[in-house]
Write a protein that binds this DNA or RNA. Structure first.
Length: 742
RNA sequence: GCUCGGGUGGCGGAAUAGGUAGACGCGCAGGACUUAAAAUCCUGUUUUCAGUAAUGAAAGUACGGGUUCGAUUCCCGUCCCGAGCACCA
């Protein structure tokens, strides 16, 4: 096909020479934490220094929850206790995650391998199970991943997918005191303006200390419900939107009204978003409304439309974000926007909570219980504390079997001579496929380097990827992870830019002739090798471009390729008269130069905007016009060849050499168009009367408007269509159109 | 349901800082060259109506409104297609 790949820069992520640096980057994640104050990753040593000097006080670290401690307490801790705390802040850390466990297969399955709670292969039951494994703290970068999108030339679709995935929402965390106890339930809400309408609370069934918020007599029912909910897969939950739940027997106090409201448990509240607890405002939230209706709970409207009244009783939740508060004490009369600000101010002043930003983005699971993957450069010492291995690469051992062990551990755990080292046991999970693919573009700059992932010189010469052409299926995977790794390596000073792919274009697919995706199943597969054998690579390339815009999916049409094939025939005959070479040295005429420079301009602009289909059309137009003029002049044809070289690399190279050139056309410099060849001094104006084209008159472009108007108004057709009515307005758009309004 | 794209001839598609809608190609029809065919070249091809014809008129960029001298392009509403998300408080 004539792709100009530089095979000297080929990389293989599964080659130890490559993955030793994937392991090194993992080690860097492990040795860094995220400072929310400086907004960047910093070495773990600075965090340890902070603990030694200030304890947990004034900590601006992104991470998990810890009990507060003093410097003295920190120093008195055991290595294991210190590890547990540091683990809460390391950017590569051991996380408790929920996985899809298939007992029958003895393995963990990916979400897409689970269908309706059963394994895709075999149809065995799958349950959700907690498992400790490595994760990368991508949430530390959530804000930068979000704001960085604004600087990128990516399609709106992909940007939007990433924005949704990151899912930033602003609101407040508010504490509700549980009646008759000293305990509080912390909720996250984006609508604190509706708090006077909060008539009950709902906690997620997975909440760890669930029992604390249950009365003794309700606990058995709650426990039974929670156990059932735990084993429901996400897909099951999704499929079933009817509301289920159990009353916990407890009540909480709405801090704004002082009224007690019941606390329920239901699986429509997700444990891993927000605090896993919500204040339910049934009048203004569809889900809460459905729940309240199902269980006959109180519904109090507190927001009404800006211009109008609510229809009571409510038939559905009024969830619009423009409205006015009522039934809401000091918030009455305020708009939703004003009330949100006022409610947060009140919450903070009263010490009930604070403004809070939440993200849907979850930490990136980085462990796989599979053989094929980069081993972690980690050994767990005799205390079970993970220690980095300095000697890289840590290579995959040869094994007898790649199959799962059956107990959920990686196949590597069975290779005891590999697992056991003098310093402890190796981590036997391996890294996911996206580990190596998150930085390969950096490796392209310096693929043979054995000392570092790439030299500073190479990285600063090549910089980030100018243009990435790929499918949109990587939107929330590869493309997000690569941005994350790039920002991290930027923080550490490895690179001087913090976005990997400046411009991203999602190419469309060539569909079958029937408009469906090409598939053996539909019998509509067209093999490019066959097309190439029949028509040649240049014809195939150009036809694919000619089919339509790069970003669109479009059906293949076998007849259509004939048109491109014929075009090459015509193009060839500009150079040959029969078998006879026919190119001349004559100087081109003005008309020929105009054709050439028009084409240079069009193709140069089209390449910039990736409108290759219209470039092909421009080549056809130029070839047709030059053919009509019988132009065989070297000066014109040689330049046209250069323009076509990126589109049809083979035929252009051949004709280029036949023109007597000894170097390759693909290193020739790109022509510049000369505007002086394109100047027109007259234009054939379409004359509209009341917006309808009625005549065509040619005028010099520098003719005066008065002269033009006089000529137009006395023109036979214009007179006819004006039907004697008086002229209302005469519009002249120079070089475009004339409109006579009567 | 929400978010983001998009609807133009028989087909793929062109043209949007508002200015001759349908470039280019496919297909189709007719013609030239040829003993014939292939190849090549030429002409026509949005729809409807009138006309033997040249030609003329009207409508037309999913549908209905609006702004404008002028709208495929801008605004409002509706329908349809595609992609993504999916109880995210």
């Amino acid at each position: 096909m004539g792709f100009s790949y530089d095979w000297d820069r080929q990389v293989k992520t599964c080659d130890p020479n490559y993955y030793q640096f994937t392991q090194q980057i993992f080690a860097l994640f492990f040795e860094h934490w995220y400072n929310k104050q400086s907004q960047k990753a910093e070495p773990i040593s600075s965090l340890i220094a902070h603990f030694e000097n200030h304890g947990s006080d004034q900590l601006h670290a992104h991470g998990g929850k810890i009990e507060s401690f003093t410097p003295q307490e920190w120093k008195a801790m055991s290595a294991l206790q210190q590890h547990d705390i540091l683990n809460q802040f390391r950017l590569a850390f051991i996380d408790e995650t929920t996985v899809n466990w298939c007992e029958a297969m003895g393995t963990v399955l990916a979400n897409e391998e689970v269908i309706n709670g059963l394994s895709e292969r075999g149809g065995y039951p799958v349950v959700r199970k907690k498992m400790k494994q490595w994760s990368l703290r991508i949430t530390a970068y959530a804000d930068r991943l979000l704001s960085g999108l604004n600087t990128l030339q990516w399609s709106d679709a992909i940007k939007e997918i990433q924005r949704n995935w990151i899912g930033k929402s602003q609101g407040a965390e508010i504490d509700f005191v549980v009646r008759g106890t000293l305990k509080t339930l912390k909720v996250f809400t984006t609508r604190p303006d509706t708090i006077f309408g909060a008539t009950f609370m709902v906690v997620a069934p997975e909440l760890e200390n669930l029992q604390e918020f249950c009365s003794e007599d309700q606990w058995p029912a709650v426990q039974a419900y929670a156990n059932k909910a735990k084993n429901r897969s996400e897909i099951d939950r999704m499929a079933d939107t009817t509301k289920t739940g159990v009353f916990t027997g407890m009540e909480a106090i709405n801090p704004f009204t002082g009224e007690p409201i019941p606390v329920w448990v239901s699986d429509y509240v997700l444990a891993n978003y927000g605090t896993g607890v919500i204040m339910a405002v049934p009048a203004h939230d569809e889900r809460d409304f459905a729940f309240a209706t199902t269980f006959n709970l109180n519904i109090i409207p507190v927001i009404k439309p800006t211009n109008g009244e609510l229809e009571l009783p409510l038939k559905e939740a009024f969830s619009a974000k423009d409205g006015v508060c009522f039934n809401s004490g000091f918030l009455d009369g305020l708009s939703v926007k004003e009330a949100i600000a006022a409610a947060i101010e009140k919450v903070e002043k009263a010490g009930w909570g604070q403004a809070k930003v939440n993200y849907k983005l979850r930490e990136a699971g980085f462990g796989r219980q599979r053989y094929w993957g980069e081993p972690f450069p980690i050994v767990f010492d005799h205390e079970g504390i993970p220690q980095l291995v300095n000697q890289l690469p840590v290579e995959l051992p040869q094994v007898e079997s790649y199959k799962p062990t059956g107990n959920g551990e990686s196949p590597l755990s069975a290779v005891s001579q590999w697992v056991n080292t003098p310093h402890g046991k190796r981590e036997t999970d391996t890294m996911p496929g996206w580990a190596g693919s998150s930085w390969y573009f950096l490796r392209y700059t310096d693929p043979q380097n054995t000392q570092e992932l790439a030299s500073k010189e190479a990285l600063s010469y090549w910089q980030q990827v100018d243009l990435y052409v790929g499918g949109s299926e990587h939107a929330t995977g590869h493309l997000l992870y690569s941005r994350f790794w790039t920002k991290f390596l930027y923080d550490l000073g490895y690179i001087t830019w913090d976005e990997p792919f400046q411009r991203l274009v999602n190419q469309g697919m060539i569909m079958g002739e029937d408009g469906q995706k090409m598939s053996k199943r539909w019998g509509n597969v067209v093999n490019p090798d066959d097309v190439c054998a029949q028509y040649g690579a240049d014809t195939l390339r150009m036809y694919e471009m000619f089919l339509g815009p790069l970003t669109d999916s479009k059906p293949w049409n076998t007849h259509g390729i004939e048109g491109v094939s014929r075009f090459f025939g015509k193009f060839w005959r500009l150079f040959y008269e029969g078998e006879q070479w026919a190119v001349t040295q004559e100087a081109p005429t003005a008309a020929e130069l105009k054709i050439l420079h028009k084409t240079i301009k069009k193709v140069t602009e089209d390449i910039e905007s990736m409108s290759f289909n219209t470039s092909v059309s421009a080549f056809m137009v130029a070839t047709n016009e030059l053919g009509t003029l019988k132009c065989r002049k070297k000066e014109v044809l040689e330049t046209l060849l250069i323009l076509m070289a990126p589109f049809a690399p083979h035929i252009t190279e051949e004709l280029w050499s036949q023109l007597g050139n000894t170097n390759s056309i693909h290193i020739a410099s790109w022509p510049k168009y000369d505007a002086s060849h394109l100047v027109e001094n007259s234009f054939s104006y379409p004359i509209s009367i009341n917006g309808k084209t009625r005549a065509q008159i040619e005028f010099e472009l520098n003719a005066s408007e008065a002269d033009i108007q006089a000529t137009v108004l006395s023109h036979e057709l214009v007179v006819k269509w004006m039907e004697g009515k008086p002229l209302k307005k005469f519009i002249l758009v120079k070089g475009r159109i004339i409109n006579v309004v009567v």
